[in-house]
């Protein structure tokens, strides 16, 4: 079948990610999954909102959070969202090399974000003694932000597996949907982060 052959301008469909039945299914399936993920994070957010003042005498959100680090993390993740848009742009133009380049940049930005998050957690634990077990606030904070971090880890592993596997194959109708679903997932991670920095960090520093 035409699956395995690299695409050339003549066989290039308008949107290679959705040209096959499998591609369409992956596209719909991931979107629907994101609908479920929305509720998953809603429940973590709800729990956090209910427990954010339950510090049990331990450090409060005002004691802990700092604007600079969170701003840096936000910029990294937002930019990685844009770079993955660039990657999909080049996929539609059938420019495999450029797509891989932009995906590589996306991965680097993701790793940067992850490093900062690990640094942040380590900072809270060593400098404030603020852990998962300190208080209900601690449990809720680490669970919400940690689950988001876990999604980043999963996304990065996914991305690297895709890039390594397809490095020598070029773009075809079999792997284009895979890149596209990854990109959608990655945007969703960013969506969740927008609410985390707003609800957890910014609101935590205000009130």
């Amino acid at each position: 079948m035409s699956h395995d052959h690299s695409l050339n301008p003549k066989t290039m469909p308008e949107d290679p990610a959705k040209a096959t039945m499998e591609g369409k299914h992956k596209f719909l399936g991931l979107w629907f999954f994101l609908g479920g993920e929305t509720v998953l994070f809603a429940c973590f957010f709800g729990t956090y909102l209910a427990l954010r003042n339950s510090t049990a005498g331990g450090p409060t959100s005002q004691d802990l959070f700092g604007l600079d680090l969170v701003f840096l993390m936000t910029v990294l993740l937002l930019t990685s969202s844009l770079t993955s848009v660039y990657a999909m742009y080049h996929m539609k133009n059938n420019d495999f090399k450029k797509m891989m380049l932009w995906l590589g940049i996306t991965a680097l930005l993701g790793f940067g974000f992850l490093a900062l998050e690990i640094y942040e957690f380590a900072h809270y634990i060593s400098d404030y003694g603020f852990t998962f077990r300190s208080s209900a606030f601690g449990s809720a904070f680490y669970t919400l932000v940690g689950f988001h971090g876990g999604h980043v880890v999963f996304g990065l592993s996914w991305l690297i597996a895709l890039m390594v596997r397809n490095a020598k194959r070029g773009l075809n109708l079999y792997n284009a949907p895979k890149f596209n679903t990854f990109a959608l997932y990655w945007h969703f991670i960013d969506v969740v982060w927008v609410f985390i920095f707003t609800v957890v960090y910014l609101m935590g520093m205000v009130s």
């Binding site: 979107w31 629907f32 994070f41 957010f45």
Partner: peptide
Amino acid sequence: GHEFPALLIFGGIWVTFLVGVTFVTIIW
């Protein structure tokens, strides 16, 4: 071609809204 994704995302957002309102008002 995004009608169903949009439908389900808005469904998720609706549940999110319900959960959010619940957890800031009637949890205590």
